[in-house]
Simulated scan of single mutants.
Amino acid sequence: MTPRERRLREQGQRRQLILSSAREMAEAEGWDFVTTRRLAERIEYSQPVLYQHFKNKDAIVHAVALEGFGELAGALHAARVRHAEADPLEALDAVARAYLAFAAKGPVLYQAMLTLDAGGAAASGGAADAEQAATPQPVLDALAEIRLAVEPVARGRDPELLTEVLWSAWHGLATLTRGRRLRPDLTEERLTALTAVLTGPAAQVG
């Protein structure tokens, strides 16, 4: 291993340690209690070393959120592939259950992904970066998994539109369930009903 390769590996390890520690602190106390000062103390780095990897806390939360979307895409993919030979509605229902299970298992991570201002443009710098960062690849990967489950039941309708509507609905169910606004014992029934409504015959107008 060359000195440069070793240096890059060490930089990657430090970056991952920062992200892992931030996630652990947030899970224990919430994101409001994650500061760059406390994080530097936890990992025994100076703040200047931490700032070599991340501009500020928002940049850390943004990176954690992207990690989360990567993990979500993996969970959705596993559910979709596992039910690939099943009835398409059953496969979509499995992806829906995997989504809500992911949100329920890691609520603080999910908050970073879809609730907090993750500082995408501000963390990376200017308007050009903002446009590029508007839909990062891990987010696209997660949406692609939903769309692949939606396409077989789209019945000639726009699968991208159905994907966006389902994603919005799943997020709403996850958020309301987490906030104890919905009865948790009916989660699966809600998902089944939602899938049936959104993928059934298009409503007739007039």
Score class of each variant (00 low, 15 high):
M1Y: 09
T2C: 10
E5C: 11
E5L: 10
R9K: 03
R9E: 14
R15A: 12
Q16R: 13
L17Q: 13
A22P: 00
A22W: 00
A26W: 02
A28K: 13
W31S: 11
F33V: 13
T35A: 05
A40H: 06
E41I: 06
I43H: 00
P48R: 09
V49N: 15
L50Y: 09
Q52M: 11
Q52P: 08
H53Y: 04
K55L: 12
K55Q: 09
K55D: 11
N56F: 08
K57T: 03
A59H: 10
A59G: 05
I60L: 02
V61D: 02
A63M: 03
V64H: 01
A65S: 15
A65K: 01
L66K: 07
E67H: 07
E67F: 08
G70H: 06
E71C: 03
E71V: 06
L72D: 01
G74E: 09
L76Q: 09
A79V: 05
V81H: 12
V81S: 11
R82N: 08
R82E: 15
A84N: 10
A86M: 01
D87H: 13
P88Q: 02
L89G: 11
E90R: 11
D93W: 06
A94P: 00
A94S: 01
V95L: 03
A96G: 10
A98G: 01
L100D: 02
A101F: 09
A101Q: 08
F102I: 00
A104W: 07
A104T: 07
A104P: 02
G106Q: 14
P107Q: 02
V108D: 05
A112F: 00
A112G: 02
D117W: 05
A118T: 10
A123V: 05
G125I: 06
G126V: 10
A127S: 14
D129I: 14
D129F: 14
D129A: 12
E131T: 13
A133V: 13
A133I: 09
A134H: 05
Q137D: 14
Q137N: 15
Q137E: 12
P138N: 00
D141W: 00
L143I: 04
L143E: 06
R147M: 07
V150M: 07
V150K: 11
P152Q: 08
A154F: 08
R155G: 12
R155Q: 11
P159N: 03
E160Y: 14
L161W: 14
L161G: 02
L162W: 05
T163L: 05
S168A: 15
W170S: 02
G172N: 09
L173N: 03
T177Y: 12
R178S: 14
G179C: 13
L182M: 06
L186F: 09
L191M: 08
A193R: 14
L198D: 05
G200V: 05
G200S: 02
A202Q: 15
G206Y: 14
